[in-house]
Structures are given as structure tokens and as C-alpha cells.
Nucleic acid binder design. Structure first.
Length: 843
RNA sequence: GCGGGCGUGGCGGAAUGGGCAGACGCGCCAGCCUUAGGAGCUGGUGGGAUCUUCCCCGUGAGAGUUCGAACCUCUCCGCCCGCACCA
């Protein structure tokens, strides 16, 4: 029943083997892996039951975009998730591990343009293919709970959320300078523009600036709250990235009166302590006051400058070391602290989108202002000196931008920066010049995309009523199936009359639909709630299930989503909370980032580079269990790196050995006859090894240290093989060892573990067994070898009873014959003992 | 520039409440088995000296703390990642 048919080609890793002159049965993954997968599917082994009374565990992995081809990186991300899920179940948890697809997005639409396939069909084919490629992994995921975000029954609720956001003023439309990707023919959120040369995160094309009317989600309303991350068990760098991205800074808004009128210029500063050193003001070129403040004689120069600046943002700023330039408006303001007359300049190193779009120039204490002042010969007052320097720093030596002690600052002279800021802010507020404020770097989330393959924004425009939300009962606003895909770069929705033309929900008159679709990050900002019951139709998700099953207990995924997806999801969850839909603020209290596997050449895997490692080939050759095992063994899960093709063999050999020791070995014993009487000491040793294995694997699995867990299994099997030779087969200790080993192997290599489990004579699946327990008593050594050091150098090793305390250990070791010889009569000045480790004699 | 992380054999990596550095695996070497082996088994494998033992040097570099440092402190060097005119 399990011999390899003569004609069948055995897999390379499991070549025929001769024992006692005949071909013996061998481990053939091609036979057992499909067999067990079919069996698990048939018996519904991993069917999810939300009402199962065992403690729940929601284990979630970021849903992938269905690119159509699974590569080894996907396996690297998902295999440990499956192993951990199996581990949890064996530990008594009802683990929910759904798997879905982030199915809207540009590649499908581009495929439609290039190959004439409808995006829906393309996407569904990709999903089918990826599911097919996932199958051999034997993953215990709840695929039937996996949402596909391009399904109307899903995106209907994106639209529903949009309406809720709109009602609360959290979704709004405004005209603003936005980032446009010429490659993708759409606007992008600020988070999707990367690098110092500002490229599109998807296609790497440099973005350009455009002034457009777009929909935004008011993320900034939650900026402060999103900064609260205490208690999140997340990788430090992700926390840091989010903190930096939100970029909170405390400061003061301060108004400077303009000479000869009643205009005022408001600036934001975090360094109010330097206000006596402010010698000029700079406005962003787009600042609304520029026109009014520009004197007739400066008009041409300012207009020129603004034009150049506007072009500059469209072309790329190639250098970060660009000079700070600008132009004088001809107007002056007065410094309300020093009384100094300050020229008002326009400069594009000042950004309209941050603070007030205007700054006070403090060249003595800010690098950019310094460069600007130098360039245009503006005065450089020095008003702060370093704490430990008695003299004022020389203005020619460059700006001093640290905190220090104030000088030449009227009544504030002599105060440290921090205290001065406090008192000066009091004065600002007292005199009505401005107030303390907090500024954030994060912007509202631009969600409009000028593309077809996304969730339509449920808004219509009526000549009479203006912007009108689509009523809830009319959702979903369906994407028209009959769209035409042309390489014009324009959304097909713009030319689709049937979609475009509608009637106003308010007055019934003719109206036009919004043609922008939503950023696909909207789809992925709440999907884990929908997973619980993907076909629920009374709301976006079943609130009762959400109450019991969320937040997610453990989230895993790539670090590339550190700001985008994770920030949006945290924002969404807070809005859901404020809508009364969930009772928590953080969707993912625990996050783990797996590393990225690169091509063997050390570069990112891509078809164009030809360095993609295909899991199908590896599975065919070595079997899914070996591939799973190797991926979990090759490095710590949070580390990535180049694919090392050679390493596969090691795990394949390990599984061969497992088979030989546990399956073939038992045959040999039967054919050889009775086992030799096993020594009692060996039997104790075997139990010790078994219980230590269980302890080690339990601890490592819990902490996601899969590589060392597997190393421990490898060591154990080697030892087990030796024990078998020593005649321990057939003993109760052997049975315990084989039994426990099968169970700890099961999460990592589920197929072979199941096969061996059954061959050991068990009827029920190994995956339904409880995780083995270890007895601390049994893991303890009876005797240990401790190192004997003299002056910190190992000179001898001595076997002593385990568990001696420091004093006893030193006494026992010092009494040893070889140690006495080593010390040769010298009396140690000191002896340090470390239990079960070493003794150090200082002479 | 700011922030986060990391430097251990030929390679991936073990070992950080300071305590025998290099677990486990790849590769390499030797032996066994074999008609054969790109299979399997056994053993060896940081560098140097000696070739049996004893010894010396070794965790990016240098210093420090300590009986004892890959681990703690300081300085420096290098690499990776994120942000980058944010006032």
C-alpha cells in the first residue's frame, strides 16, 4: 500500500535505498501530501466555527493583491502563520485565520487596456491561480471567510462608510495642489509618494503637482490620537515611522503687523525663544497675501519668481542641497518683540501646506534662514548662546540651532531657551498676538483616484442641489461592466453615459455621478471585520461577532505598510468606534513584520530580473513539508535576505531521517526480532531529551523563533536515531518520544507528521491532538560538566552533580584531583561559581 | 541632516537578567556503502602553532567596567531601512 510502484519516478530527494538487499518503502511526498490534503478538506478539519467555546484567537495576515503569481516570498509570509495557527489549535484555541484578496487596483486595469481582458475577469483568474498555488502548502486557513474586495457585496460597505464619514464631516471635497502620477494617470495620497525625488510608490514614476478638486478623509482630526501608541506590541521601527509621519510639533502662532495698513502675517514657530533674532519674514509663493503685499516696483520680480517656483515643483527638484532663494516684496512688517523693521520676502523653501505658510526668518539660529540671509545680505542677529559658552557665537561661524541661553532679548535675556519659550508664549497670548498651537505634518488622506477599477465614490452632482450623497438604500453604486478600456489614460467612467447620467436623489432632476473611485487602501482599512461573516447583509459586519472576535490578536505582514495601510486602519478603527460599531481603538494590538526574501542575486525578486523563485518547482522536487520547513528554518522570520538555494537539501534530509528513524526503523526492529535490553540510564536520557524538546519547541513557537525550534527537532531526531540503535525501540520511553515528536513537528510539516502519526497506530488526526506538555523534573540534568577557569581562562572541565549552589560547586570542583593539580598548591584569592556553568579561580 | 536597526566561520545563522563563542543547517574534507553516484551513512571542519597532548589569537576597530564581555559604557568605522526645505 505504501511502497513505490516500480515504474514510478521517485523524487530526487528520496531516491531508492537499499536495505538488506531489497528496495524498502520510502518517504514519498508526492503520495502522502495530496492524500492528506484531500482528507483534511473532506473532513473539514479546519472549518471555522465562531461559536466554538474554546478561547478565541484571531490570527490575521495582510491580505495580498492578487498579482497572479505566487512566489516564494508569499510562502515565506504565510507558512509560519499556518504553523502558528496549528500550534494555537493544539494549545486549545479556536483560531480564526482567514485569507482574502485586495482585489481592486491598477494592474488589472492595465491588463484590460493591454490585453482586452475585463479587469474583473483578469482579477478573478489571478485569484483562482493564487489559490491553486497556495493549495500545496496545506494551509489551514479559512478561505471561505476571505473577502474579495472587488465584489459588490464588499465594496457596498466601503460606500456605506463613505456616507457615514461624509455625514460627520470626515469626508470632504476640496481644491488643492495634489500629487499626480503621470504613469498611473491618477492622484495619490501623500503617503504614496516616496523618496526624495518624490516618485509614485506603485510605478516609480516621478509625480507632478496639480491643482485639482479631490475627495479627502479627515485623518488629521485623529492625528493626536493616532500618536498614542503606548501598549502597542509593534516593532519599534514601525512605531517610529508612524510617529515621524504624523510629525507633531508644539509651538506658537504669532502675528506680525505689516507696515502701512492693517494686514497681519501669521507665522508658526517652535522656537519662539529666538523671536528677538527674527530679522525678516518669508511667505510661501502661493500664500494668499503675496499679491496684496507686493509693492508695484517689485511686482514683476515677484511674478517671475512665483512662475519659476511653480515650474520648479512640476519639474523635479533634483538636489537636496538646493539654495534657498526668494524675492523681496517691497513691504515691511514689525517685530512685536524687538520692534525691528522686517522686510517681507517670498521664498519657496517655505511650504504653503505646513503651519501658516509663512515663517519668521531667524538666520542666527536656523540653517535655512541663515543661508537665505547670507544670500541676500540680510542682518543676522545672535540672540541665543550655548549654555557652556560665555560669549555670543560669531554670526559668521554659521547658525547655532540648539537650545541655549538668551542674549540681547530684552527682559528675557539670561533665560534658558525652554523657560523663555514658556514665558514668551504667555506674553504672546496676553498681548493677543497669537496663541500656542500644535501642528502636524500628516495631511488629510486623499482618496480620489481617477481610475475605473476601484470602488465608486457614492456621490452625484446636481445642477440645482450641488453635491448630493447617494442614499444608503441605493447602495451599492455598481461599477458598470460594459466599460471601454482605451490607452488614453482617462478613466472609462468618464465616457460611460449609462453610469454618468443619473437623477438627483434630492430633487429628481438630471445629475452626474462622481467618476473618481476610492484609493484601494480604503478597501483594506476595515476588511478584518468583514472576514468574520463575509456575506452579512445588515451592515458592514456583524457587530456581535466583532464584539467577540476583535481586535485582532496577532497581525503579521510586510513592513512596507508601516505607514500607509496601518495608519489608515488605525484611523478607520477610531472612526468605527465613534460610529458605535466597535468598542476598541486599536485594530491590531500585536504586529509582527516578516522579512523579505530577495532573489539569489540579492535583489528584489521580479520577473524582469529573472530571479523569481517559484514555489511550485520546489514543492514538486522536495515536497511542501520540506519547503515549509526550510522557509521557517533558514533565518529568523523577521529577517529577510537573499534566497539560498542550497539550504533546501538540509531540511529535505531531515525529513528523510525523521522517516527512517520513526517509520523504517520500526520495520527493521520487527524484521530483526527483539530489541536488546535497554539500559535504564539510556531510557531516562531519552525521556529527558523528549521533555527538553517539548519545552524548547513550545517556547520558540510562542515567540515566533521557528528557526531554533526546527534546529532543536533536528538535534532530537539525530539523538533519537542513536537511541534506536541502542535498542530503545519498543520501550514506553520510545513511544513517548515518537508521539511527542510527531506533535511538535505537526505545525511545521503537517503532512508527514500526519502520515507518521497514523503509522504509529493512531486513528485521529495529529492536528486534533493536544500540544504535548513537559515535566520540568524530567528536563533536569543529573550531572553537568562545568568549565574550570583560572583567571578567566578555561583550563579544565569537571563533571559534577547538577544544581549545586555556588559554595558547594566551588568546594566540589576544588576537591577534584585534576583541579588540584591545575592549581598546583596555589591558594586562590577568590573563587566564583556559577550554578551548572563554571567555576573561576582567581590566583 | 534627523530617527530606527544591524556588524559573529567560506555562507544562512545560534548563544545577550555578562558565565565553556560558533547550536542547527549549507558548503568543504576524510572514511564507509556502492558497478556507479550530483544518493545515503559515520566522523571532522574559526584562525595559528604543534600535528598526541599542552598553547596562543579570535564576535567591525579602539578604549573602559568586571574574577569574567559577542552581550554593559564611551569613541570611531561600516552597512541596511525610514523621513527629509516641516519653520
Amino acid at each position: 500500500m505504501w511502497g513505490v510502484p516500480r515504474g514510478a519516478a521517485p523524487s530526487l530527494a528520496a531516491g531508492p535505498r537499499r536495505v538488506f538487499g531489497e528496495v524498502t518503502p520510502l518517504y514519498d511526498h508526492r503520495e502522502i501530501e495530496p492524500k492528506w490534503r484531500a482528507e483534511w478538506e473532506r473532513s473539514g478539519l479546519y472549518r471555522f466555527d465562531p461559536d466554538d467555546p474554546r478561547p478565541k484567537f484571531y490570527l490575521l495576515t495582510m491580505l495580498p493583491y492578487p498579482s497572479g503569481d505566487l512566489h516564494i516570498g508569499h510562502w515565506y509570509a504565510y507558512t509560519p502563520v499556518d504553523a502558528y495557527a496549528r500550534f494555537l489549535r493544539m494549545n486549545g484555541y479556536n483560531a480564526f485565520v482567514p485569507f482574502g484578496f485586495d482585489a481592486f487596483g491598477l494592474p488589472a486595469e492595465n491588463a484590460a487596456i493591454q490585453r482586452g481582458v475585463h479587469p474583473r475577469e483578469w482579477t478573478m483568474r489571478c485569484i483562482a491561480r493564487m489559490r491553486e498555488q497556495m493549495r500545496p502548502m496545506g494551509a489551514s486557513f479559512a478561505f471561505d471567510h476571505g473577502v474579495v474586495t472587488c465584489e459588490p457585496e464588499y465594496y457596498k460597505w466601503d460606500q456605506w462608510f463613505f456616507l457615514k464619514f461624509y455625514e460627520r464631516g470626515l469626508a470632504y471635497r476640496k481644491r488643492a495642489p495634489v500629487d499626480w502620477c503621470p504613469g498611473c494617470h491618477t492622484t495619490l495620497a501623500r503617503e504614496q509618494v516616496v523618496g526624495e525625488d518624490r516618485r509614485c510608490e506603485r510605478c516609480d514614476t516621478p509625480v507632478v503637482r496639480r491643482e485639482l478638486e479631490q475627495w479627502f478623509f479627515r485623518l488629521t482630526a485623529y492625528a493626536d490620537e493616532l500618536l498614542e501608541m503606548e501598549g502597542l506590541d509593534w516593532p519599534e521601527r514601525v512605531l517610529t515611522m508612524q510617529r515621524n509621519w504624523i510629525g507633531r510639533s508644539e509651538g506658537v502662532r504669532l502675528r506680525f503687523p505689516v507696515e502701512g495698513g492693517d494686514e497681519e502675517i501669521e507665522v508658526f514657530t517652535t522656537r519662539l525663544d529666538t523671536v528677538y533674532g527674527a530679522s525678516f519674514l518669508v511667505l510661501a509663493p502661493e500664500h494668499p497675501l503675496v499679491d496684496r503685499l507686493t509693492r508695484p516696483e517689485a511686482r514683476d520680480a515677484v511674478a517671475d519668481y512665483r512662475y519659476t517656483a511653480s515650474r520648479r515643483s512640476e519639474v523635479q527638484r533634483l538636489s537636496t542641497e538646493r539654495v534657498q532663494d526668494g524675492v523681496f516684496t517691497g513691504s515691511f512688517a514689525r517685530n512685536p518683540f524687538s520692534g525691528r523693521r522686517m522686510p517681507i520676502w517670498v521664498g519657496d523653501y517655505v511650504l504653503l501646506g505646513y503651519g501658516t505658510g509663512a515663517i519668521m526668518g531667524v538666520p542666527g539660529h536656523d540653517g535655512r534662514d541663515y543661508a537665505f540671509a547670507r544670500r541676500y545680505g540680510l542682518p543676522i542677529p545672535v540672540v541665543v548662546r550655548p549654555r557652556d559658552a560665555a560669549e555670543a557665537p560669531d554670526a559668521d561661524a554659521g547658525p547655532f540651532s540648539d537650545d541655549g541661553v538668551l542674549i540681547d532679548s530684552g527682559p528675557y535675556s539670561g533665560l534658558p531657551s525652554e523657560e523663555a519659550r514658556r514665558r514668551m508664549a504667555d506674553e504672546v497670548e496676553r498681548r493677543g498676538l497669537g496663541q500656542r498651537t500644535v501642528e502636524y505634518r500628516v495631511r488629510d488622506w486623499l482618496i480620489s483616484r481617477q481610475r475605473y477599477w476601484g470602488c465608486p465614490i457614492p456621490i452625484v452632482y446636481c445642477d440645482g442641489c450641488g453635491t448630493v450623497p447617494v442614499p444608503e438604500e441605493e447602495l451599492p453604486v455598481l461599477l458598470p461592466e460594459d466599460a471601454e478600456f482605451l490607452p488614453t489614460g482617462e478613466s472609462p467612467l468618464l465616457r460611460n453615459e449609462a453610469f454618468l447620467r443619473t437623477s438627483c436623489p434630492r430633487c429628481g432632476g438630471p445629475a452626474r455621478r462622481e467618476t473618481d473611485t476610492m484609493d484601494t487602501f480604503v478597501d483594506s482599512s476595515w476588511y478584518w471585520y468583514r472576514y468574520l461573516d463575509p456575506h452579512y447583509d445588515e451592515g458592514p459586519f456583524d457587530p456581535e461577532l466583532a464584539r467577540r472576535w476583535t481586535p485582532v490578536d496577532q497581525y503579521t505582514g510586510g513592513v512596507e505598510h508601516a505607514v500607509m495601510h496601518l495608519l489608515y486602519s488605525r484611523f478607520f478603527t477610531r472612526v468605527l468606534r465613534d460610529l458605535g460599531l466597535v468598542d476598541h481603538s486599536e485594530p491590531f494590538p500585536r504586529l509582527f513584520n516578516q522579512g523579505i526574501i530577495l532573489g539569489a542575486d540579492g535583489r528584489r525578486m521580479s520577473k524582469s530580473r529573472g530571479n523569481v523563485v517559484n514555489p511550485d518547482d520546489l514543492v514538486e522536487r522536495y515536497g511542501a513539508d520540506a519547503v515549509r520547513g526550510y522557509l521557517m528554518f533558514c533565518r529568523p522570520w523577521d529577517e529577510g535576505g537573499p534566497w539560498q538555494p542550497g539550504g533546501m537539501e538540509g531540511v529535505a534530509n531531515f525529513l528523510q531521517r525523521v522517516w527512517r528513524v520513526l517509520v523504517e526503523g520500526s520495520e527493521e526492529r520487527r524484521s530483526e526480532g527483539a530489541a536488546r535490553a535497554a539500559a535504564a540510564a539510556d531510557r531516562r536520557e531519552l525521556r529527558r531529551a523528549t521533555h527538553r524538546l517539548v519545552r524548547k519547541v513550545s517556547e520558540d513557537m510562542r515567540a515566533f523563533r521557528f528557526n531554533t525550534a526546527i534546529a532543536a527537532m533536528m538535534e532530537f531526531v539525530r539523538q533519537l536515531g542513536r537511541m534506536g540503535e541502542a535498542g530503545l525501540r519498543g520501550t514506553p520511553e520510545w513511544s513517548e518520544a515518537a508521539d511527542a515528536f510527531c506533535r511538535v513537528l505537526a505545525p511545521v510539516c503537517p503532512h508527514i507528521a500526519e502520515e507518521i502519526w497514523h503509522r504509529l497506530g493512531h486513528g485521529e488526526s495529529v492536528h486534533l491532538q493536544p500540544w504535548p506538555e513537559w515535566d520540568p523534573e524530567l528536563t533536569a540534568d543529573e550531572a553537568v560538566v562545568v568549565a574550570v577557569q583560572v583567571n578567566g581562562r578555561v583550563r579544565e572541565r569537571v563533571r559534577v552533580p547538577a544544581g549545586l549552589d555556588e559554595a558547594e560547586l566551588v568546594r566540589v570542583v576544588a576537591a577534584d584531583e585534576r583541579v588540584r593539580r591545575l592549581l598546583s598548591g596555589r591558594t586562590p584569592r577568590r573563587a566564583v561559581g556559577v550554578r551548572d556553568r563554571l567555576v573561576n579561580f582567581v590566583v
